[in-house]
Amino acid sequence: MRKEIIIQSDPKSPISEVFRALRTNIQFMNKAADCQTILITSTVQAEGKSWISANLATTFAQSGSKTLIIDADMRKPRQHKIFQMNNVPGLSNFLSEINDLGRRQRINGMDCVKPTEVENLYLLPSGNIPPNPSELLMSDKIIELINEVTKNFDVVIFDGAPCLLVTDSTIISRLVDSTILVTSQKYTKIDDLKDAKKRIKRVGGNIAGVILNRVEISSKKYEEKYYYASTNTPVLQTERRRQAKRNYEDSDFENNDELKIKNSFEKYNKKESKSIKRNDTEVDEYINDKIKDTQRQIQDEIRSTKFKSKVEVPSDKAREILDSIKKYKD
C-alpha cells in the first residue's frame, strides 16, 4: 500500500486527526438521515477526491464498520493504484457485462469486490476503461449493485469523477444518500462550486457538506511534522524501496528484537542521559550492518532463483549466428 493512506502510515499526524473528526461528523449525520452511501466528488479534476475517499474509507474501516470503496471514476481510475491492486474485473465489467478479456459474461457485483490490506476495508475497482461511462451508469444495473452492496456493507464510499466536466457523478448523486464536495484552497472557483451544487440539487441529490482540501498551514502554528505529512514528500517513495523495507521487516525477527533493545535504550537514556549514549551508537551500527546483510541476502536470492535458465544449449538460429561470429576476422 502506498504512503498516501496517511491514516495507516502515520496514524498520529494531525491530518489523521482531521479525518477522524470528519468520520465522527458523518457518523452523527448517519443517525439523523440514514446515510450509508456517500459520494465524493469535486468541481474539476485534481482537487483530492481519491485521496480523501481512500483516507476517509480507511478511518471508517478502523472504527470497525465494514467499509466498501467503489472507484466510480471510470475515466481516470486511481484507487487501485493507491491500494496497489488489480483494476480488473471491476465496476465497468459489471455494468457492461463484458469481462476483462472482452467476452460477454454476466459478472456478479460482489465477485469484483476485493479485500485490501486494511482490515474491514474492501475495494470495488473501476475495471477496464469503457468508452461510454455515463451510459453505463444510466443503466438499472447500478441500482442493483447499490442494493446488493448496502446489504453487505455498513458504509459505502463512491469515489466519483469531477462533476462539472462529466455527468457521471451527477448520475450517481441521485442514487446515493449524500454527496460530499471536495474543494481545494486557491484552486476551486466559487462559481464552479455554485454550479456543481446546482447540478446536484437539480437531479435531487443531497449535499452533506464541503471539504476544504490543501489548506496552507503555517509551520509556526503546528508542528513541522504536519508539513511533511502531506503526500508531496520531496523524495519519491517508490514501490521498490517499500518492497525492500517490507522484505527486511518480514525476514528478520532478530532485528525487531534489536529495535526493541534500542527503544529500551532510548527510554533508559532519558532517565540517565549521558552515561549510556555510546552504547546507543553501537546498537545503531549493529542494526545498520544487519540491514545491509539482509539486503545482500535478498539480492543473492534473486540472482540464484529467479534468473536461472533451464537448458544451456543454443537454438539452431543462434548456432548459425555463433558460427558466423567464429568465422569473423578483421
Partner: peptide, 14 residues
C-alpha cells in the same frame, strides 16, 4: 524470439 540462453551464447562469443 531469441531467448536468454541464445543471447548469452552470442554475447560470450562476441
Amino acid at each position: 524470439e531469441f531467448d536468454k540462453t541464445d543471447r548469452a551464447f552470442i554475447i560470450d562469443a562476441i
